[in-house]
Design a binder for these strands. Structure first.
Length: 425
DNA sequence: TCTGGGGTCCTAGGACCC
DNA sequence: TCTGGGGTCCTAGGACCC
């Protein structure tokens, strides 16, 4: 059996841990740039605010009534790690899946005692971290997701719901569940399934896996097997190195200035390089993209991207910055007002397994070693003394591309200075 | 005025090879 | 009228996730 554990309104719950006055109030957390609502407390949901609702389209009455906060990912990430440490007390097999969800394997545990065990798990997470979680237990991940959903919607379960593969309860649940509510089935697939007369999770479960595979894909076939209680989905290790690294942001306001774009691309490439070194990889190519604002239908639209290959695989910020600069120069057009740009690092490889070239000369090895030590020193300074203590190039003051996040609460668990605001603020 | 960011996997189809 | 066959690799794009 496997459990899916996930935080109730996770971002809101994190905020409430550090500000109990938010309990009982309609609270929302906003995306980057304070753009739209990405997490809602139960009270905010009750006011009819949809997930993803743009902030500027919320009725004034709701904006007055609700507490709307900028997102504070440093805080949420830290709380998430704490929750996972608690889960590890209950099983050696914890697989973090996203910032607010983890699978917990219970292979070899006494099936009869599982629910009691999960109730204790849930209470301990609440006590030690302050985060309320729901727990869904089932033989497969897809069913565990369904069970998790039930654990939150049906008060009778008190936060822990178990679904066995062939019980009457499972059948009734799946018969009432629209197929698009399943993990891995979204609108597009739902539309095509409806044409075949498959609208509930139960109907999908009863479909012929081979037929599903040929009409759709192996992905959907696996979901059929999982619904029947046969595990078919393995999770890739979230700690495995990423295969590509993307850093992008919408601008705080639109800009047509090359200088603004260059500054933003520099910043994104710098961040991407830090992520790259943290996971011990080298990049072989850099992609830069930019685009105008698709919501301004009257403005001329332009979107483009360019890949620049590096001369040799690298994790050195200057090499990546230079490639990004050239990529941007290749696609920048005067006369557009840009809304977003980003930098992607591609063809990543393990730094330990660099292919040595026959053409290498001693000075190449020396240069690489010097670069490596320079980057390591820079990362250490920025880690210990604060981000951007040492950086390449200067930031623009009041940059057009800077994020708006005026409603952010303190990063209480990772910044001493901001923790103090709890007491003084 | 104001609409997020960062990922993965799979498939189809083209290029290329012998 | 009929114009090989089989394989690999790569890329773009679709679909999905949180």
């Amino acid at each position: 059996m496997i459990a899916m554990v996930d935080g109730d309104n996770f971002y809101v719950s994190c905020e409430r841990v550090f500000n109990p006055r938010l309990e009982g109030l309609p609270v929302g957390v906003l995306s980057n740039n304070d753009g739209c609502v990405v997490a809602r407390s139960r009270e905010l949901k009750a006011l009819g605010v949809a997930l993803g609702a743009p902030l500027h389209l919320l009725p004034p009455a709701i904006r007055r009534q609700a507490v709307l906060l900028s997102s504070n990912y440093a805080l949420y990430g830290d709380v998430s790690r704490r929750v996972n440490r608690v889960l590890a007390e209950f099983s050696p097999d914890v697989e973090p899946y996203s910032i607010d969800e983890s699978f917990v394997g219970f292979t070899g545990f006494d099936p009869g005692a599982l629910e009691t065990h999960c109730h204790r798990l849930r209470e301990t997470v609440r006590q030690w971290t302050g985060i309320p979680v729901g727990v869904g237990v089932a033989p497969t991940r897809v069913l565990a997701k369904v069970a998790n959903r039930l654990s939150k919607r049906m008060p009778a379960y008190e936060g822990v719901c178990r679904l066995d593969a062939d019980s009457d309860v499972t059948r009734r649940v799946l018969q009432q569940l629209p197929v698009t509510q399943l993990w891995g089935v979204a609108r597009r697939t739902g539309e095509r399934l409806a044409l075949m007369g498959i609208e509930t999770a139960w109907q999908l479960r009863e479909a012929d896996p081979k037929q599903i595979r040929s009409a759709f894909s192996v992905v959907l076939e696996r979901i059929v097997w999982e619904l029947r209680g046969h595990p078919a989905i393995e999770l890739e290790d979230v700690n495995a190195p990423r295969q590509r690294i993307l850093v992008s942001r919408s601008f705080g306001r639109l800009s047509g200035e090359l200088g603004d774009l260059q500054a933003a691309v520099r910043q994104h490439a710098t961040r991407a390089a830090e992520k790259l070194r943290r996971q011990g990889s080298l990049a072989q190519a850099v992609l830069v993209f930019l685009r105008t604002d698709p919501h301004r239908v009257c403005d001329p639209q332009y979107t483009n991207s360019q890949v620049v290959a590096l001369e040799e695989p690298s994790d050195a910020t200057p090499a990546l910055l230079e490639a990004a600069r050239r990529a941007l120069a290749a696609i920048f057009l005067e006369g557009h007002r840009y809304q977003k740009c980003g930098v992607m690092l591609l063809d990543l490889m393990d730094a330990e397994r660099r292919q040595l070239s026959l053409l290498d000369e001693p000075k190449d090895a020396w240069r690489r070693d010097r670069n490596r030590r320079l980057m390591a020193t820079l990362d250490r300074l920025n880690r210990e003394m604060g981000r951007d203590t040492v950086r390449f190039g200067l930031p623009h003051a009041d940059s057009a591309w800077a994020l708006r996040c005026q409603r952010r609460t303190g990063r209480y668990t990772t910044r001493w200075d901001e923790l103090m605001r709890v007491r003084t603020g």
